[in-house]
Design a binder for these strands. Structure first.
Lengths: 252, 252
DNA sequence: TCCATCTTTCACCAACTCATGAAAGGTGGT
DNA sequence: ACCACCTTTCATGAGTTGGTGAAAGATGGA
């Protein structure tokens, strides 16, 4: 449908083009990308918290954060001698999610099948991570059981429709937050998408184990899918499709 | 910039990180971004078609397309002396959509409110463009009335649920494609999101005019929202919210 | 006050990106 | 065969980006 050709299609001064390419440039570096993913999923962090988490030096991270700041993507608030960073552009989360999903499809189409058993499902402290954990989180937010993280608070708010929690075997009202937070988002290290943590995350994992859908392996973090889990989880958690065959996947 | 990163969060060899940052790098240039947007929305193009449309020289575009090709984002097929390019990674459309939506929110939050009357709604040949056209297209695909473009065919396929067409006042069965295609995606120049073209696009515009929701201005491409349109269109087209009043907009 | 800690800035150097223009493959029509 | 056209490659040079380490602001506690 390209009819009349005016110059201006490709013009870095065009606002939308400038906005998109500017954002893409910021996301094109591993440090900046990971920092934004962590801030977006898990809420505000101090510079050293972030530097520790990412395993980079403080000056290196500081330079990148300064860039992100002048791009308007993060904001800093000084509390005493600590600099607390948080995302400043709320819409960034959708972009990060779209990119992470693209990467999953991209790698799945590639030569190496990355889905080891450990990648399929494992525990992160006491909650579910891996592809299963990520799929559960996505289903919860899409079904309105959970509000997606807003990058400003490390605690997650519940949505208006907790029915999916019920289908998973969790009675939300019965889950008591003790010292721990009720629900948090925890960025999956490999998939770069959030999974559910906190007391509610533990409750979901307990329910899955109680229903014999997954089974923890002794002394390891890997969760194995039971035959029943392989059969029932894809229907229970839209978007979760174990890659061909039962829980056993031979790794290197 | 690379090399000595410890196995950890920030490692450009980590597959997901490499995939995302690699994609972001490709999207960080106006020529590559626009080429991908055009190919993704409107289907395959020849190199010179693209170069004409974008207003750049053939060698310049060729270099960028070579990059996109080795990044696996586009594929080329040689037909005689023509090189036909098309997108090779289907998931790219979702990323481009997310980025364009981010840009809209980003610019709306900025100092200058870009929503002129012309930007709100105007005609593109004989169909609806501007914010209204883009919102109609998004609503049609999300409601299942239209399948989103797949980057391989310039013609769009209809979805399984044409009810939104009915609500817009269009009887899909009565629309006869003559020489023109029934439905095409046409990339909006400013918003970088598709709107509906083809005979069906004309039918939608005609229906909106017949219902006195919008009114074409004599001798201009600008469409003005009627009071009725201002009242009824937001309910009819989810996602379309005229920025508080027909013409003038004051900053928040 | 001094000291430890957290944060930011700076300059240098290596590596990368991109536009340009010329020239070299290919292909089809005459 | 020739010519016109479409496409690709190449080298150059200007500009940008990113890691590093040292050093300079800030802040709070002793």
């Amino acid at each position: 449908m390209s009819g009349t050709e005016r110059p201006g299609w490709v013009d870095s001064r065009e606002p939308v083009v400038a906005s998109v390419t500017g954002l893409a440039r910021e996301l094109a570096d591993p440090v900046r990308l990971t920092a934004l993913q962590l801030l977006s999923a898990e809420g505000p962090h101090t510079l050293t918290q972030l530097a520790d988490a990412l395993g980079v030096s403080a000056p290196r991270l500081g330079n990148h954060l300064a860039r992100l700041r002048s791009a308007g993507l993060v904001a800093v608030e000084h509390h005493g001698r600590h600099a607390v960073y948080q995302v400043a552009a709320p819409g960034i989360a959708d972009v990060l999610t779209a990119l992470a999903r693209y990467a999953r499809a991209d790698l799945a189409a590639g030569p190496v099948r990355p889905a080891t058993a450990d990648d399929l499902a494992h525990t992160c402290y006491d909650h579910t991570a891996g592809l299963l954990g990520v799929a559960i989180f996505a289903a919860l937010t899409e079904r309105g059981a959970l509000l997606p993280p807003d990058g400003r608070d490390s605690a997650l708010a519940l949505g208006g429709d907790p029915s999916l929690f019920g289908e998973l075997g969790v009675d939300v009202g019965a889950v008591e937050p003790g010292r721990r937070k009720l629900a948090t988002a925890c960025l999956d290290r490999t998939h770069r998408l959030p999974h559910l943590g906190g007391v509610l995350g533990k409750a979901v994992l307990d329910a899955l184990v109680a229903r014999d859908l997954v089974r923890p392996r002794e002394g390891a973090r890997t969760l194995t899918l039971t035959p029943r889990g392989t059969r029932e989880l894809p229907a229970l958690v839209p978007g979760f499709t174990p890659p061909s065959g039962p829980g056993r996947v031979d790794s290197a």
